[in-house]
Amino acid sequence: MLKEFKEFAMKGNVIDLAVGIIIGGAFGKIVTSFVNDILMPPLGLLLGKMDFTNLFINLSGKEFPSLKAAKDAGAPVISYGVFINTVLDFIIVAFAIFLVIKQINRMKAEPVPVPPNTKECGFCFSAIPIKATRCPHCTSEVK
């Protein structure tokens, strides 16, 4: 059983999957940083200096200046600003994966078959140019 597991684990597909998961995790961190640190601050500035990570609905009835303060106090909150950031993360990752898959499919596309430029002589069965009217090998007239 151990031998079978080793064969399974060392197959190319399993290793490719493991590498893909590791790279995907790292890519996810990059996208999260892009959304939180580069995309959302200018967007928040355009929307009146709004910090999306501090958008929350307080369910306790008490006032809190920030989401962190509400969570530190143990107040129940709905963090819809964090949810917006997470949705943007997902959209960016999904779009990036779409672009990668599109390029892979483009590279895997079957080449357009090239029309033949030769034909076979009906008498000597030699390959001759398609426009030839006479075979250069046996001098027979070819249709």
Score class of each variant (00 low, 15 high):
Ile57Arg: 03
Phe123Ser: 06
Met107Thr: 11
Thr118Ala: 08
Asp51Gly: 00
Pro136His: 07
Ala73Trp: 08
Thr118Asn: 12
Ala75Ser: 05
Lys6Cys: 03
Gly122Met: 03
Phe27Leu: 13
Phe8Tyr: 15
Phe34Trp: 10
Thr133Asp: 12
Phe8Ile: 14
Thr32Leu: 06
Ile92Cys: 06
Asn85Gly: 07
Gly25Cys: 09
Ala69Trp: 01
Thr139Ala: 09
Met50Ile: 15
Asn85Glu: 12
Asn85Ser: 11
Met10Pro: 00
Cys138Met: 05
Gly25Ala: 09
Leu2Asn: 07
Phe27Val: 07
Thr53Met: 06
Phe123Arg: 08
Lys68Pro: 00
Ala73Val: 02
Ile78Ala: 11
Pro136Lys: 10
Val19Gly: 04
Leu55Ile: 07
Phe27Thr: 05
Pro65Asn: 05
Ala127Glu: 14
Lys29Asn: 12
Pro111Ser: 13
Ala26Lys: 00
Ile84Trp: 05
Asn105Thr: 12
Ala109His: 00
Asn36Lys: 15
Ala69Leu: 03
Ile128Gln: 03
Leu45Glu: 15
Phe83Pro: 00
Val19Tyr: 09
Ala70Lys: 04
Val19Pro: 01
Leu55Val: 04
Pro129Tyr: 08
Ile22Trp: 09
Phe125Met: 13
Pro65Lys: 12
Ile84Asn: 01
Thr86Gly: 10
Val87Met: 15
Ala127Lys: 12
Cys121Thr: 06
Lys119Cys: 05
Val35Ile: 15
Val31Arg: 01
Leu88His: 04
Ile128Pro: 04
Lys29Ala: 11
Leu17Arg: 05
Ile22Ser: 06
Lys102Phe: 14
Val114Trp: 13
Val112Trp: 03
Lys11Ile: 07
Asn54Leu: 07
Phe27Ser: 02
Leu2Thr: 05
Asp72Ser: 02
